[in-house]
Computed example of a mutant assay.
Amino acid sequence: MSHLWLGLLSSVVVFVVCFSGAMYSFKTQISELLNYEVVFNQETKQTDWIQPDQIKTNFQQKSQNITNIIYPSDFSRNILVAYHDIEEEFDGHYYIHPSTGEIIGSSSRSTGAFFDLMKSIHKNLLLGKVGNHLVGISILIFVILLISGLVLWFPKNKKQWKQGFKIKWSAKWARVVYDLHNTLGFYTFLLLLFISITGLYVSYAWVKSAVVVSLGGQPVLNASNAEAMKGELSNVFASFLEESMDNQEEKKKEANVSLNTLLKDASQRLPYKGITTIQLPTEDNPLYQITKIKQEGIFSAVVPDHVKYGKDGKFKKLVLFSDQSIADQFMEVSLPLHTGEILGLSGIILYFIVTMIACSLPVTGILIWVKKL
């Protein structure tokens, strides 16, 4: 009975959150498809890559300071360059040819407004902080429903075992609806539970702390528990303080280094093929950072490795995803884990299907309740 009433209580919010999340899934793919002629290189013949120093010079001649350069893994795509226009005081981006540096264009056909709306609905139902709490409570209820639903599904005899794994399409509509609710819920149980928990992780500090601690990491600090954790986190704080002081020293320096040299050094430290991002120093982050997206290993998971340099080009730090603790790895990829992007397009498609099934569970659940009435 509690499964029924909790389901009725959260059904509308769960449906809306799952549906908006499913619609948001293909944001990148749809945007790239609409801007196909600028995102993808029409001349895929392999030649030499244009060097980042040349890109920087080309943009500086137009009073534009580059902030990021993203090199694709192969010549099928153009290079994405983000910049800040000094004269007009605005941020923009261009796609450029990977060998000539010719500006192809920008993503002019935007679906940003639609996907921003889907994202806001997914996070807070367009109700601000009140919506955040409504979504959070509803997802917590959904987690309870998943667990209680599994308990209710669990067969009590051999006949029920056979019925529990399939949908009897030839039966009356009420039986089909019942089978859809139970069978689809069972098959998607683990993935829906994982998506729900990672969604709560992204949204709530206390869930983040619980998950990180369970993986062997340190609790996430907030105003209410910071004092109690001072002793426990002394080493972490000391490391953070040292890094902060180092950053302050870096801010005083003038950026004077060859991007070509940094890219060459990073390629030697990360000797594999992948999407490479060169991030230039900003006011908040005074370091050069080169990130390489690795798509190797188990399930071809998309994971990042980082190399950091000072403004003088001095090597600072190599952060390999494989060397991090499980807790740090989880924090690094928590968002792509929630969206399925961690597994690339195949993961996004899988998550879309599972999320649409999640949309159906409140509907079939209500139909079962109405039939009983």
Rank of each mutant, 00 (worst) to 15 (best):
K158M: 03
Q160G: 03
W161P: 02
K162T: 09
Q163V: 09
G164Y: 10
F165W: 14
K166C: 12
K166G: 11
K168W: 08
W169E: 03
W169R: 10
S170H: 12
S170Y: 12
W173K: 14
W173L: 10
W173N: 08
V176H: 02
V177T: 13
V177R: 04
Y178K: 11
D179Y: 12
L180I: 10
L180V: 07
H181A: 08
H181Q: 12
N182G: 15
N182E: 13
T183I: 15
F186S: 00
Y187H: 01
T188L: 07
T188G: 01
T188E: 00
F189W: 04
F189K: 00
L190G: 00
L192N: 12
L192A: 07
L192T: 06
L193I: 02
L193K: 00
F194G: 00
F194C: 01
I195H: 00
I195Y: 06
S196Q: 07
I197F: 04
G199Q: 02
G199A: 13
Y201T: 14
Y204Q: 14
A205W: 06
A205H: 09
K208P: 04
S209E: 07
V211Q: 04
V211S: 03
V212Q: 00
V212I: 09
V212K: 02
S214N: 09
L215Y: 07
G217Q: 01
G217A: 07
G217C: 03
Q218E: 12
Q218I: 05
P219V: 04
P219A: 04
P219I: 03
P219T: 05
V220M: 06
L221D: 10
N225A: 15
N225H: 12
E227A: 11
K230A: 11
K230H: 08
G231Q: 05
E232V: 11
L233E: 04
L233D: 02
S234M: 10
S234E: 15
S234P: 01
V236K: 07
A238V: 02
S239C: 03
E242M: 12
E243R: 10
S244C: 05
S244H: 14
M245Q: 13
N247F: 14
Q248P: 10
Q248D: 15
K251C: 13
K251G: 11
K252V: 05
E254R: 11
N256D: 09
V257R: 04
V257F: 01
S258R: 02
S258K: 09
L259V: 05
N260T: 13
N260W: 14
N260V: 11
L262T: 03
L262V: 06
K264T: 15
D265A: 14
A266Y: 10
S267F: 09
Q268R: 13
L270V: 06
P271M: 06
K273F: 08
G274C: 07
